[in-house]
Design a protein around this nucleic acid. Structure first.
Lengths: 248, 248
DNA sequence: AGTTATTTGTTCGTATGTATC
DNA sequence: CGATACATACGAACAAATAAC
């Protein structure tokens, strides 16, 4: 069964109608009329309105709250998150914020699979400390990160992180004075239910996923990392500094 | 109304059940039983099964095709998309593919708003050529890009791009021999309906959105750019090249 | 604090449209 | 063309969260 005159489903027309209402109001419309009234206004069943609202909510335009109403999503500006050779996820991350912080969610010892072994220059099966951490700024959770560290080289990394709340300091306790980011790969995914929970996000939120490998000054890998940043709250900024003229 | 014993909605249990079926089959399950059979198997109404399938499809796990069936989505590996100072979106982009290509979707003349004027070092209201382009590799659309060019400096950019299919060549026709990417900001969003259409994607797909500004060798901005890459098909790779040893 | 009204969320039922096989 | 299978649409009822009294 397809909608009124043309071959367009009715819920799509309703969705476009709602889009129009929002555009017409020009920012003045905070809350949508209730579903029953929209259904009456568009001359369709309440389910059809709900289908339209679901589509717009999936787009990020609306946010429906049970018992309260349906609201036009007004998103605050994202926090800029610089990424470069000197990226320190748990630290520089939220330096712009007044109260940055990190928290250890979980830590365990896992064997390296083929992919991790390749990234870290280890044999498959080598023991790795896996740390799951949450980074928070001004009380708002920004990202969940999983870091893998060679357990033989960094035997006390978990305790050091738990004590200092900083990867950089925990590495320093193992003799790493400085390190560099080698490469960052960025993708986008939907938040997993577990990550949505940690990030205090509705389950339909998006994650900016970045994979990276940090190396010591000798080029030896010391950490593989997978960070899921809340896409509504964070933007990644890559500064492509011009190459030094002298080096040609 | 909430499902059977605990406070979990039935469609969530059904979704978990389907997840289980897929996991249990371990890759051997290509096609799901039809909705009516799933409804019977889980003891719920067909609508409840459809709600569960919709959720899993939104997660990217399933793909429903009208008239054919519901299938477990097997996603091909993402194409790596290097981003750096010498990024040429319409070109390097898909060099890894056998048949890269670009297509002009739309072009028009727009006045610079405050944000664009700031990025491009122009006065607000200055005329800009806006080009909407689609980049394709091996027949698969990868990304939609919108580029803004100062119209006074690049009066014939639209014709030049339409003729050559390349931003770099179109700029060369205006005397730009080389240019650099200054900065890239990356976020994630849901695909807009229009972009989903262009990218031949289901409407619930995700976009990796990158904003960038290109400057000529004198540092003068020549292009502002907003690219929406299909998150399932593309990953952005940022290579944080080590500082050249020779230069100290 | 407790009760009621409002509003979105879930579930079932039924029927029909439309694409595929 | 008929059968199959997903998509759309309407109707009815109740659940659960919130807000108002």
């Amino acid at each position: 069964m397809i909608g009124g005159e043309d071959g367009i489903a009715r819920w799509r027309s309703v969705a476009d109608g709602i889009r129009g209402m929002i555009a017409e109001a020009g920012g003045a419309l905070e809350r949508l009329p209730v579903e029953a009234e929209l259904a009456a206004r568009f001359g369709v069943n309440r389910h059809t309105v709900r289908r339209a609202i679901a589509a717009l909510a999936a787009e990020g335009l609306l946010r429906a709250e049970r018992g309260r109403g349906t609201f036009v999503a007004a998103r605050p500006p994202r926090l800029s998150y610089p990424v470069g050779p000197r990226t320190r996820f748990s630290e520089n991350v939220a330096r712009a914020a007044r109260r940055p912080g990190g928290r250890l969610i979980r830590a365990d010892l896992v064997p390296a699979d083929a992919a991790l072994a390749g990234l870290l220059d280890l044999r498959p099966g080598a023991p790795l400390h896996r740390l799951e951490t949450l980074s928070v700024a001004d009380g708002v959770p920004l990202s969940v990160g999983t870091g893998w560290f060679p357990a033989e080289r960094f035997p006390a990394i978990v305790a050091a992180y738990a004590e200092t709340g900083s990867i950089t300091l925990a590495l320093k306790a193992h003799g790493i004075e400085d390190y560099r980011r080698r490469e960052t790969r960025v993708t986008a995914e939907r938040l997993s239910p577990a990550d949505a929970e940690l990030l205090a996000s509705p389950p339909d939120g998006l994650a900016l996923v970045s994979h990276g490998v940090d190396v010591d000054l000798g080029g030896c890998p010391i950490q593989a990392n997978r960070t899921r940043a809340h896409a509504d709250r964070v933007e990644l900024v890559f500064d492509h500094a011009p190459p030094p003229r002298e080096a040609g």
